[in-house]
Structures are given as structure tokens and as C-alpha cells.
């Protein structure tokens, strides 16, 4: 297990390094001088020279990339030149809101999706199975920003059950959860159907395997066979899909944060792009990439926890 974790973490770090390098390469290959890109067209030559010196833009490109790595890993995401503050300040202020939103969306949608999928497989061709099947496709087909707008209209404006905008008062947990409901509903909805379909298909496959016949031949209670013996194997593909799908969730989060006016990474990226604040865009992108890499890593580790065959290195 230890070796497996080290392998996975090392791979994650390598991916992160490559992603950071690519991001940096994108910046210096953008049309025009990076100083113009960063400082805007109205910067003076003097300002540009100072800026180039400070960012090490006069060094060879590989050295620049190494220096960039160094700055990133010491927590320096660059400087928000437009507002004269470190990029890290707005990014890390926005990050927790996005993390909470994404994790809450994954949490409720995965839990419900897995249960629905297991139930559909256990009662195949029942009414619940058919209804879940139709709903799953419907949920998958609905774009998250449409769901966000409609749920905002119905639950916040017409019914007035949930607040329409913001992330709630700091320190007031109930209020923050109250503000979380609609955005996480909008983002997670598509995933419920998706996860339910994956789990149902893999559950049906697992239920036909010999070891399930063995469990039944020993008279184990049906709910135990389904939820303990089969589901644990059937969720493996769903976990992998979730790990990668977090990227998709992040982009849905951009919409949700704009629609619900939640302070978060998505909205920060959007606003920075609008105001051409490239350092902040880059800093937020970096954090988003790191989050994505960590999520795929987490998915691998969860799978290794569930499936012992993954964590033993192949001997024969």
C-alpha cells in the first residue's frame, strides 16, 4: 500500500510540474511581449524593464521555468499588477468557497447516484429502475447553467426557499449550508444520472460473477450481498470517472458561481478574463489544475482502499 501511494503521489507531482510548465510556456508564447500582456498596452518602457527584471524574463526559457516552479512551490502565485497585491490573496480567499461547492456537489450526487444505481440493478426492470433510467438521461442532457437558472427562478425567486445569491455569512454554518443548496444542486444533478448509470451497469456485471453465487449459496442476506459484497466492486469504475470528472465539475462551478454570484475561483477566473488581469487568471488556473490533479489522485487512492488487488504490486 505504501509503495502504491508513493507511486501515485509521484505521478501526480510529475503531472503538476508538466502542467505548470505548459502554462508558463503558453504565457511566453502569447502574441506580443509578456510584459505588454501582463502590464497592458499603456505601460512605460521603464516599467517593462523593471517588470522583466523582477520576473526573470531576461533569463533563458528553461531557467525561467525552473524559477517559476520555485515561486509556485513557495506559495508565490505572482503579482496582481492591476490591483497591486499578490495573486495569492484573491485566489486563496476564493478557493474555500469553490472547494466546498465542488465537494458538496460530488458528495450528494455520488451518494444518491450510487444508491439509485445499486437499487436499479437489484430491482432490474422494476418501476424504479425504469423511472431512474429515463430521469438519468434527462439529468445528463440538461446543461448545468440551465439547471442553475431554473432552480434559481423556481426555488429562490418564486418559492423563496433558498437565498438567490452569495455564499452566506462567514462563521454562520447554517447560513452557508443554506446558500450552498441551490448551486450544488445545479452542478451535481447531471452527475446523479451519470453515476447511477455506471453503477447500475457494473453492478449487473458483478452480480453475475461466481463469487456472488458463492455468497448466495451460503444464504447471506440479499441486502448484505448487494451492498457489502457487490457494491464495493461495482463502485470502482464510478470512482475513477468521478476523479476525472471533477474537471467538468470545476467548469460547471464557473457557471454556478456566476449565476448565484458566489465568490469563488470560477467567478474570479471569469472576472479576471473580462478585465484582462492575466496574472490572476494564471494563478487561478494553477490552483484549479492542482485541485484537478489532487482529485484524480484521491480517486486512485480511494479505489486502492476498496480493491486490494490494486495495491499489491504484481508478483507473478
Amino acid at each position: 500500500m505504501g509503495r502504491y501511494i508513493i507511486q501515485r503521489v509521484a505521478l501526480g507531482l510529475a503531472i503538476l510540474l508538466v502542467a505548470i510548465s505548459v502554462l508558463y510556456a503558453l504565457m511566453i508564447t502569447l502574441p506580443g511581449d509578456p510584459t505588454t500582456v501582463f502590464l497592458g498596452p499603456r505601460a512605460t518602457d521603464e516599467m517593462r524593464a523593471v517588470f522583466s527584471e523582477r520576473l526573470g524574463l531576461n533569463n533563458p526559457v528553461p531557467v525561467q521555468i525552473l524559477q517559476f516552479w520555485g515561486r509556485i512551490f513557495s506559495g508565490d502565485l505572482g503579482e496582481d499588477v492591476l490591483r497591486n497585491r499578490p495573486v495569492a490573496t484573491p485566489v486563496f480567499a476564493a478557493l474555500p468557497n469553490t472547494l466546498i461547492l465542488v465537494l458538496a456537489s460530488i458528495g450528494w450526487s455520488a451518494a444518491l447516484g450510487i444508491l439509485l444505481g445499486a437499487f436499479s440493478a437489484a430491482c432490474r426492470n422494476s418501476l424504479v429502475d425504469r423511472v431512474t433510467g429515463v430521469l438519468s438521461v434527462a439529468m445528463l442532457a440538461a446543461p448545468s447553467f440551465v439547471v442553475a437558472l431554473w432552480s434559481l427562478l423556481i426555488f429562490a425567486v418564486v418559492l423563496n426557499w433558498f437565498p438567490a445569491i452569495g455564499a452566506g455569512e462567514h462563521g454562520d454554518l447554517a447560513d452557508r449550508i443554506h446558500h450552498l443548496v441551490l448551486p450544488s444542486f445545479a452542478i451535481g444533478l447531471a452527475w446523479v444520472g451519470y453515476i447511477a448509470r455506471i453503477v447500475r451497469a457494473s453492478m449487473l456485471e458483478v452480480m453475475g460473477e461466481n463469487h456472488i453465487r458463492t455468497a448466495r449459496a451460503f444464504g447471506l442476506p440479499p441486502h448484505k450481498i448487494i451492498y457489502r459484497y457487490a457494491l464495493r466492486i461495482a463502485v470502482l469504475p464510478a470512482v475513477s470517472v468521478l476523479g476525472v470528472g471533477v474537471g467538468g465539475l470545476l467548469s460547471s462551478a464557473v457557471f454556478a458561481e456566476i449565476v448565484f454570484a458566489r465568490p469563488g475561483i470560477g467567478r474570479l477566473i471569469y472576472e479576471s478574463v473580462i478585465s484582462r488581469n492575466y496574472p490572476v487568471v494564471m494563478g487561478s488556473m494553477l490552483v484549479a489544475i492542482a485541485f484537478f490533479v489532487m482529485c484524480t489522485l484521491a480517486a486512485d487512492l480511494v479505489n486502492a482502499m476498496l480493491d486490494p488487488r490494486l495495491r499489491t504490486s504484481k508478483k507473478s
Binding site: H211, R213, T214, A217, G219, R228, Y229, I233, D307
Partner: peptide, 20 residues
Amino acid sequence: RGRDVSVVFQDPMTGLNPVL
């Protein structure tokens, strides 16, 4: 099942649950 009548199946490679 398993108390009055029990079974040993043919294929030992797939007859036991792999994750328990």
C-alpha cells in the same frame, strides 16, 4: 443454504469475493 446443504464450486479463482 450453507447450513443444511453447501457447495464447493468448480473455479477456485473466481469463487471468492476479491475485495474481502
